[in-house]
Amino acid sequence: MSKTNILPGFRPALGFSLLYLSLVVLIPLSTLVFKILQPDAHLSWAGYLDIIGNERVQASFRVSFVAALIAAFIALVLGFVLAWVLVRYRLPAKRIFDALIDLPFALPTAVAGIVLASLYAPNGLLGEPLNQLLGVKIAFKPAGIVVALIFIGLPFIVRTIEPVLQEIDPSMEEAASSMGASRWQIFRYIIFPNVLPAAITGFGMAFARGVGEYGSVIFIAGNLPYVSEIVPLLIITKLEQYDYSGATALALTMLVVSFVLLLAINLVQLMLLKRPQTPTAAKAKP
């Protein structure tokens, strides 16, 4: 069964992994599904539709997904610029900047939440000038959600694009240049297609993370029902009201929608990478 079967420990390693994974991930996850299937639970199909059809619930889904989408797009653009500058340009203190990119990964979300809220608040360090100069309000508005999600999504984008940019063979660009391509054409036809799959992956990860994000959002969002209330918050609200069916329905929907979106993103990526797989060419005479 195993390729390198002279190595020891296959059974205990796999056995423990499966046991742990079952206890910690699989059995808990199955509760979501069984909650729906259980006939005696209050959550029938009709009941489910009822919960999801609720206006406040639909508004929260709209807020969560639209904000995550916008944030992922902005993070994609900013993240690409960051990756480009970090890979291509000479910069003092590059190591420090590079390490800082991971700050949103490492910083607990609650901490990110309170600091972003205080910075972008109407009297905050960034909120005040933005409000006075441009008349833009960020905190306690839907825009606040987007700002928090850009912060959270940025490292996903940079960390997926960076290695691909590093690996682009410079001689491909030189070749394009030798054939008369301008700098813009090199970017458009050589760099962009090579980076695109990674960019889509990063976008997908930032988006998926954004939809489910809770800690960094709730402090800055204002949490106004119908306007700036996100799905995870609504789940918690329902839980606090002991509405387990409602919470489950929301969580399950969010899970399914996220999976479908991730699947769609993976399909797009597969289509981009699709090539006719006929390795017979190698056999031809030189």
Binding site: D169, S171, M172, E174, A175, A176, Y189, N194
Partner: peptide, 8 residues
């Protein structure tokens, strides 16, 4: 180019 630099 030495390693051809064909566009993959």
């Amino acid at each position: 180019f030495q390693h051809y630099a064909l566009f993959r």
